[in-house]
Design a protein around this nucleic acid. Structure first.
Lengths: 263, 263
DNA sequence: ATAATAGTGTCTCTTAGACACTATAGC
DNA sequence: GCTATAGTGTCTAAGAGACACTATTAT
């Protein structure tokens, strides 16, 4: 192949009728988004949930899938992911980052010979718990993100993860892995919370994400060692105990990872 | 940060005259690959180099760019990246991993109104130093990957990185960041070496990548703490000193990251 | 006072880094 | 023997985790 001067065609829907060679057929491009929120389950334990859409047609008709859609020509990849969120739930993301581009040959439904192959660029987002309410419809509902999430009494059995359409279970598991990894060395945890929060609330976020209890004293020490927390003069009152101090996050308002923000 | 340009040698423009509707125009999809090898520079110091291709047309005519090309409909994203490598250098990658999908609106060349927007999925690869020789042509040559790399006497001035076409400098910097990050907590370093190597050679790899000297004893302790190295009965003889034992890497032969290999 | 959680202090065990030491080849 | 690098031993300082302790509110 010559490295130069090879025309790209635009692929997709029937344009470029002048391009006939099979090898130049371009896979279509879509954006999907894994959206995480923390919500208490039936037992009151906080765990990770995500909004999913139910497929209304084959393949995988009736199964849950990630929100997604095509990339418009006048929006960035990140904008398309944000639009996914907006259109599915009406929620603004508190954090948004690219996850991975999936483009294996076996992603499309095997039975459909000649079905167009889809390359998906997947983002993951965090939304704040208190804004994470939207009108659930029959085809758009919160579901537990993993097996640790308790049953919603219908689709997911306690201890086994909800089965998803396409390769979306694998994608969600990878997004969970990234979230759990990232919360240990970065500041993503703040984005589940509002402007003011107590260290106990932040700890609860970390415990829910990591699914394990954390030592109160060590957590406090580690968190305060980072310089992106600011004490306020306010306290959360009303509990039957000493009122905890409220803190404010002052670090980068991370939409997109720092080094990749506009790409 | 602004991202300009397409990462590919797509020919730059004037094609696809039959496509007129802006809003329905699907961005085209391309694969580019950042290929790293370790090579001694003029001073004999080992540093990171990469093969680049020189653009033969506008935009950025004459400047160096990453190897890349369109995704064929019958190959996975990773296969396309491997094909980039093969076609540019004839080299087989020892390690290959997806880096990021770049799709900002400003990536296409601004002067060309209506030029097609390109979304690039970029991979990064490591190749072994001793196989990293290929016939350099006028338009395909090894270049220092960063400012630490010494001058090749022509294109890069000592201490300042080579200027690349489009947003490729930013992409390369991000790939370098990933490599340096990853070599500290994973096993990517082995992939620069052949089957048998001494710990001193492995340390030299790490030192070249991280651009700092490492303590011999501590490096040995840290490396041997990981269980993916195996002693052999062989020694490297011929030096004016005690012959070092040769080791063999027995960990995962990483093409693609473990959790993403087939997607 | 009691219950409950906020917040502090401190001990220990592990680990990262510095660095001194011994080993063994070629000359 | 000397030189050069291989390879080992060990001291120290910093950090992670466990956990006991004090502080302050509502009742």
């Amino acid at each position: 192949m010559s490295l130069f001067g090879e025309p790209l065609n635009t692929g997709g829907g029937g344009l470029n009728a002048n391009v006939s060679e099979r090898a130049t057929l371009q896979p279509s491009l879509a954006i999907s988004t894994v959206i995480f929120a923390l919500k208490p389950d039936a037992n009151g334990k906080v765990s990770i949930w995500m909004p999913l859409v139910r497929r209304t047609r084959e393949p995988f008709k009736g199964q849950w899938a990630l929100p997604g859609g095509p990339l418009h020509s006048d929006e960035s990849l990140e904008d398309a992911a944000r639009r996914n969120l907006q259109e599915t739930t009406g929620i603004e993301p508190a954090y948004l980052e690219q996850l991975y581009a999936f483009g294996g040959l076996q992603r499309s439904h095997k039975k459909e010979i000649g079905a167009q192959r889809v390359v998906s660029i997947v983002y993951w987002a965090l939304v704040k718990g208190d804004t994470a309410e939207f009108e659930e419809r029959h085809n758009v509902q919160w579901q537990p993100a993993d097996a640790q999430g308790s049953s919603n009494g219908q689709d997911a059995i306690q201890g086994s993860p909800l089965d998803l359409a396409f390769d979306h279970r694998e994608i969600v598991d990878y997004a969970l892995w990234r979230l759990r990894n990232k919360i240990e060395y970065s500041q993503v945890g703040y984005h589940f919370l509002g402007e003011l929060f107590t260290l106990a609330q932040l700890r609860e976020v970390h415990e829910a994400v990591l699914n394990k209890t954390l030592d109160k004293a060590n957590f406090r020490r580690d968190i305060l060692a980072n310089k992106d927390l600011e004490e306020t003069e306010h306290f959360l009152e009303g509990g039957r105990h000493r009122p905890p101090k409220l803190y404010r996050y002052t670090g980068p308002r991370g939409l997109g990872s720092p080094s990749r923000s506009t790409s």
